[in-house]
Amino acid sequence: MHRHGAVRSQSRRGECYDNALPGTTQAESLWSLLKTEVLELREWPVFADPADAQASIADYFDYYNHDRLHSSIGYQTPYHAHRQLLKTTALNCPA
C-alpha cells in the first residue's frame, strides 16, 4: 500500500466509530443485507465473472431501494421515503 501511495483507513482498536461518516450505519446495513439475502444463498462460485457480480449487485440495490420495505422508515421503501422527504422539504423551503 505504501509503495502505491495508498493510506489505510482503519479505526483504533475498540473504537469502531473512528471512521464513521453520516449514513454509515445505513451503508453497513445495506452490505450486511446484501450478504445475507443474496450472497449466502448462492452456490460457490457466487458469480460467474465480474460482469455477473456487477449486474447482480445492481439488481439487489434496485430491489433494496424500490421494493424492499424497511421497518426503520415505517415499512416504506427508501425511494418512497426519500420522495416524501423531498415533498416536505420543498414545502418548508422559502422561495
Rank of each mutant, 00 (worst) to 15 (best):
S72L: 08
E37D: 14
C16L: 10
A20I: 02
R12D: 07
K35N: 13
E28D: 09
A20L: 08
Q76V: 02
H80A: 15
L69C: 08
Y63S: 04
S71F: 06
D52M: 04
Q10Y: 01
E15V: 06
N92Y: 02
Q10A: 14
P45F: 11
S29K: 05
Y17R: 13
Y60H: 04
H82W: 05
Y60E: 01
K87I: 08
S11H: 06
D18H: 04
R3S: 13
H70G: 08
R68P: 00
D67K: 11
G14K: 04
L33E: 10
H4Y: 15
F47R: 03
D62R: 10
H66R: 07
E37K: 06
S29E: 13
W44I: 06
A95Q: 08
E43A: 10
D59Q: 12
Y79F: 15
S11I: 01
T24F: 11
I57W: 02
S29G: 05
L86Y: 01
Y79M: 08
V46F: 15
Y17C: 10
E37F: 03
G74L: 14
G14T: 02
H4M: 07
G5P: 01
N65D: 06
L91D: 15
R3M: 13
H4I: 06
M1T: 08
T25H: 09
L39F: 07
H82M: 07
L21K: 12
I73D: 07
D62N: 14
G5D: 06
E15Q: 13
K35W: 01
Y75W: 15
T36F: 05
Y79N: 06
S32G: 12
A55W: 09
I73V: 11
L69T: 04
R42Y: 05
V46M: 13
R68L: 11
D49Q: 05
H70V: 11
H80W: 09
H2D: 15
A20T: 05
G74H: 14
I73P: 01
V46C: 12
T25A: 14
L85F: 05
R3T: 10
A81Y: 07
Y75S: 13
D49K: 09
T24Y: 14
S11L: 00
H82A: 07
Y75C: 14
A27Q: 03
A20N: 01
V7R: 07
Q10M: 12
R8A: 12
A51Y: 12
R13V: 11
P22W: 07
N19E: 03
P22Y: 05
S9P: 00
L34W: 04
A53G: 05
F47P: 00
F61W: 06
A81I: 01
L41I: 01
L91E: 09
K87V: 14
A27P: 00
S11F: 02
C16N: 08
H66F: 09
Q10W: 03
W31C: 02
L69H: 04
D18V: 01
